[in-house]
Design a protein around this nucleic acid. Structure first.
Lengths: 131, 131
DNA sequence: CAACCATGGTTTAGCTCTAAACTAAAGCTA
DNA sequence: TAGCTTTAGTTTAGAGCTAAACCATGGTTG
C-alpha cells in the first residue's frame, strides 16, 4: 500500500518535471511519447502505437491529428491500416529532444547509485511482468 | 531511463487495475483519492487537499463539485476557506471501499516478497525525498 | 479608516484520456 | 459473387487535468 503511494508520488513528480522541461519544445509528455515511439520504430501502425503506449486507439487517433496538423508526422495508408512516419521536421525535433530528455531522466534518478538503480529496475521488472 | 519507463509502466498497469475495480462503486481513481483523503483527515481545506494530491486547486474545485453533487461530501465555509467533510453516505462508501482497495493493492504487489517490498519502498522513498 | 496585498476558491480554454458507437475496408464462406 | 465477420481507424460525449485569469474576503499598514 505504502509502496504503491510512493510509486505514484514519484511518478507524478518526475512527470511534472519532465512536462515542465518539454515546454521548451512546445511538447507535453503524451506528445513526446508519441514522437519518441514513432521516431524509434518508424512504419508502425496506429494500433501498435496504442498498445505500446498502453492507451486507447481513440486517443492515439486524436493525438495524431494534432501532431500531423503540426507537421511532425504523417500517416501512410497501407491496406486497412496506417503506417506512421516522422516528417523531416519531426525527425529534427526527435533528434534534438530525445537525448536532452534522457539526460534529464538520468539526472532525476541520479540520487540513486547505479547499483540501486538496477535494484529498482529489477523489482519494477518483476512487478511489470507479473501484471 | 529504463528505470523510469518501468516505473511509468507499472504505474499505468496498477492504475488501470484499480480503476477497473473501483467501477464497482462507481468511482474512478481520482475520486477515490479525494474520498480517501478527506475521509482520513476530515476538516482539511481545499488547498491542503490539492497539495496532498499533487494537483491544482482548480482541479480539486471541479472534483468537489461532482462529489458534492453526488452527495458524498460537503464544503463548510470557515473564514475564507472551505473545510471538507464526508456526508453519512460518503462515510459509508469510505468504510466500504478503502479496505477493499487496500487489499487489491496488496495483491498487486504480492509478487514481491515482504523484504523486496520494503526494498522498493526504501528506494522510492529516497527518490521521493530527493525530488 | 481607506487603500493595498495576500490568499483561498472559482472559472475558463484547451489538452489528454476513456468507453462506446460508428465507418469502412478486407477476408471468408456459402 | 453476395453476405458475414473481423479489424483498423474515426467520432463523440464526458471526465480529469493544467495554467491562467478572475473574484472575494481577511489582514496589514499608512
Amino acid at each position: 500500500m505504502v509502496a504503491w503511494l510512493r510509486l505514484l508520488r514519484v511518478g507524478q513528480k518526475v512527470s511534472r518535471t519532465l512536462t515542465e522541461d518539454l515546454k521548451r519544445w512546445n511538447l507535453n509528455l503524451a506528445q513526446f511519447d508519441v514522437l519518441a515511439r514513432v521516431g524509434g520504430a518508424e512504419g508502425l501502425t496506429q494500433q501498435e502505437l496504442a498498445e505500446a503506449l498502453l492507451v486507447t486507439k481513440g486517443n492515439v487517433c486524436q493525438m495524431l491529428d494534432r501532431l500531423q496538423k503540426r507537421g511532425l508526422l504523417v500517416r501512410r495508408p497501407e491496406g486497412r491500416s496506417n503506417r506512421l512516419f516522422l516528417t523531416d521536421e519531426g525527425r529534427r525535433l526527435f533528434e534534438e529532444v530525445v537525448p536532452s530528455h534522457q539526460a534529464l531522466v538520468a539526472r532525476q534518478f541520479s540520487v540513486l547509485s547505479p547499483e540501486e538503480q538496477s535494484q529498482l529496475m529489477r523489482l519494477l521488472g518483476r512487478l511489470d511482468r507479473a501484471l
